[in-house]
Design a protein around this nucleic acid. Sequence first.
DNA 1: GCAAGGTC
Length: 762
Amino acid sequence: MIISEKKKAAQAIAEALGPVQTISVSKYVKVFHVKSKSQDIYVIPLRGHIQQYINSPAYKKWNARDPREIITNSNAIQRIPNDYAGPYISALKKYAKICTNCVIGTDADVEGCSIGMMDALPFVTQVNPSIKIMQIWLNDLQKNSIVQAYNNLIPPKWSWAYSGEARAILDAVIGFSATREVSLTLKPILNKINVRFTSIGRVQTSLLYLLYLRENLIRNFVSKPFWSISADLAIKDRLIVATHVKNNFSDKNLAESIYDKIKDAKDAYIMSIKKSSKKILPPTPLNTSKALVLITKNLKITAKLALKTLEDLYLNKIISYPRTDSDVFSKTYDHLSILQKFMIHNNYGSYVKTRFQQKKVIPRQGKIDAGDHSPITPLISLEPSSPKFENDLQKKVYNLVVRSYLALFGDPAEESDTKVLFSINEEEFVSRLSVLTDQGFYSIAPFLAKKYDAPLVFFDQLSTGKKTDQTDSTKKAPLGSLPVKKINLREKETQPPPRYNDTSLLKLMERKNLGTKSTRPSIIQILIDRTYIERKNRMIFVMELGFLLIDALKIIWLPFLDPKFTSNVEMQLETIRNGKKLMKDVVKDVKDEFLILFDKFRKEKPNFLSKMNVLEQTGNITRGRNNQIISNKKNPVPNKTSPNPSKKAKYSTALCPNCNKNPMKLVISRDYTKKFFVCESCNTFLSLPKKGTPKILKSKCLICGFDAVKIIRKGQNNSFEYYLCPKCWNQGLKDKTNEGFCSKCKEYSIENGKCIERKINP
DNA sequence: GCAAGGTC
């Protein structure tokens, strides 16, 4: 028997080893049977980890035992099968009974070894203690690689498996103990703001700390004025901008004196022209991180949706396996057959044909060979109209993947940079032009290019016409001149560092080695779900709960918050993998290290609590999902905790129909059971339907002028949405007329989210 | 009720 990490790998292994028959062992699990001359091989797929750590029964209730014991008592956690593991375990046991050899064929990485040897193998040896155990080390799933690896089986890499096991234990121990301790400490405060717990984890809390640091910089940023001087110069009907070489000026007087000196100048004398050009190599192959960055950046979607879309394309056999760290293809990778599929593609075909004509069919390679999976490539050629795409987003993601892949075979691009020095009334100005002179691979992947200036021959002619030595431009006669259209003196302000978005956050996590290719998008989502952070206009804001939590924790737990904690843990795990240390010693060391921090937290609890009490004092309110106010049920109060008051929503809700003073606020309780509009000055309420999630539309009801609202009802099988006007609806409740539903409105209807006059059917 | 890591 061969144990594989997933269905796709199981199938690939089986098909490489001989003719395959599939056996359904349950509704969802198929085993691949290879009948060769000498032996029967059964390849059993898993679904990633099939076991996980949870607290043992005695520790299940949060108040039953001291959270500290989760660190000190190794029996506080236990490994149990995941809820979906049943059929996989049955299959493992069934074939373990009839097999003489068990080959671990999970992914060739630490988690793969852990899945094979720690999650799956115990069920095998349980029913067949004498089974012989080996491992197949697969660097890719190409047929010849599999056959070669199968003929060269290795002894199981136990040290790799133990490294993964230690990771799982430490994450559970640290996460469970700290989450409980901090949550229980904050319980009175959390109750008041309708938050159930505050999660703490090796990765998420480090990430939150980094976001906190940026948030702090932004909140405390004091902008300073500075002045910049520029000149608009005319070349026929085109304008170019030259900036003063001493920009920017912090001294207003100096800037003004220079401006006064040149403001009426008529000519800018060209003193020197320097040209250079450089080649830009095609991109390197896509691994998961690069793909997520590419997709979130170009399609402006979240990391989570980007990964989900890649997974969907993979499951529909449109692209290759999307979870890989490698950006290097194996030498034998069959690029020709992929390229050939695109020869007749409407959009990519002509580019691909040119590649074949010029015999340029070798891709640019990257540097990381993680030994897991090949970089991400398309598997088939699809026109945008193909019914294989389930939605528009899949088309767009596919387009980016295909073009990025085809770009690997492209020619280098070339850009030319021109630096021109001007003299305007003896003040030096500079202008830089960057022009793309050879498109190269940008023709297939234009989204990879930076912004270039439009070509301009003017300076080329000038510099070729008068060849001069450029060593000292100030004393030379000018090469020519350009009319000055305008001299600008602009007062500007220094800007705070930018907020993170999903793209820059993924890059940050990669740089700091936080999370893995597969977990990064979900870690971001966890911080959002915990109402530690929120996403608005694709930017990340740290909310009050997250901000204060880190603000209070940083005094006590800096060693844990710093990403160095994770890197240190990973270094220790590495010593297990390379056999320098035993798992039990590393687990003990890290537990001891964390126990010191845990006890420090206990000692400093009063300080921590008093810092967190601010949360209550600044308003017993926190900002929740969709930027709605999550409030204390009894007493909704205005939101005083907006992280950036200057960033007010452009759209405001209708004024209170009772007092006409304030816009109404939509309030949704944390558990989504209470939803209503409230006026914060006169306490007027407008109720909303009990079921479904309300969303304010950017359109007013044409009958009463109140905001139209969409109600989204999500069910297991049938999701639907409908529209209503809260004011009309409440009136309808009062009068028992059942009015207020937009679908029943005779005069108007909602089209594309807007209340418009109803179209009359002829 | 909790983590992070796999995978459908």
